[in-house]
Design a protein around this nucleic acid. Structure first.
Length: 197
DNA sequence: TCATTGATGGTCT
DNA sequence: GACCATCAATGAG
């Protein structure tokens, strides 16, 4: 946490390969916890450690945007895994997902919160906040996450006991009937940067 | 501390 | 025209 932020310059590792994203969406969601989200932009390097995610399981999942059909907005969800699905919500906030599973499955994982790395005082405890902090917006729609601009890299080894993962209901999807009750939100237990505590 | 509400615009009916 | 995978400001208690 503050130790990582304060000390020697943090350097991103290699981007995770496409095979990482091609797995079962729930498995990918859980595996993303602890990984670093990295953006190399005009502003320089901005990054954070993923501490909260939500899984969206494709068109059968009534909470998923892909359940509304294949449209210009959702097109990237139906493409190959390992690409960014970025959308505008409430007219002012962007949210970022990673596309998962087999091509055509329409599944993705929403990144909901980060523990900031650079800059260390950034507010990243929500899907809109983290996009703003990392300068991610709709221009990144469809971007290949196996490139070197925007990507995820493997967890930083901490030499500590592994952090426990909590499963919970997803936020803001009450309209989705039975799917709203599914425990498809995952976060690191006790982490101070989770969006709702 | 909690509940409520306004901001703001793309997407879909 | 309604809805929305959000956030910040506000006001009551």
């Amino acid at each position: 946490m503050t130790e990582r932020a304060a000390n020697r310059a943090w350097r991103p590792q290699a981007a995770l390969p496409r095979s990482f994203y091609e797995g079962q969406t729930i498995d990918v969601a859980r595996a993303l916890l602890g990984c670093s989200l990295v953006h190399h932009g005009a502003h320089g390097l901005r990054a954070g450690r993923i501490v909260e995610v939500e899984a969206y399981l494709g068109p059968r999942d009534k909470a998923a945007h892909s359940a509304r059909g294949r449209t210009a907005r959702t097109e990237v969800m139906f493409g190959p895994a390992g690409h960014a699905y970025v959308y505008l919500i409430y007219g002012m906030h962007c949210c970022m997902n990673v596309v998962t599973g087999p091509t055509g499955s329409g599944s993705a994982v929403l990144i909901r919160a980060l523990e900031p790395i650079t800059p260390p005082d950034a507010r990243t405890n929500g899907p809109g906040l983290l996009c703003r902090a990392l300068a991610i917006d709709r221009r990144h729609y469809g971007l290949d996450l196996t490139g070197d601009r925007l990507f995820v890299c493997a967890p930083i080894e901490r030499g500590q006991a592994q952090e426990r993962i909590v499963s919970a209901k997803r936020i803001g999807v009450e309209y989705a009937g039975a799917w709203a009750k599914r425990l498809l939100r995952f976060y690191l237990a006790g982490n101070a940067h989770v969006s709702r505590r």
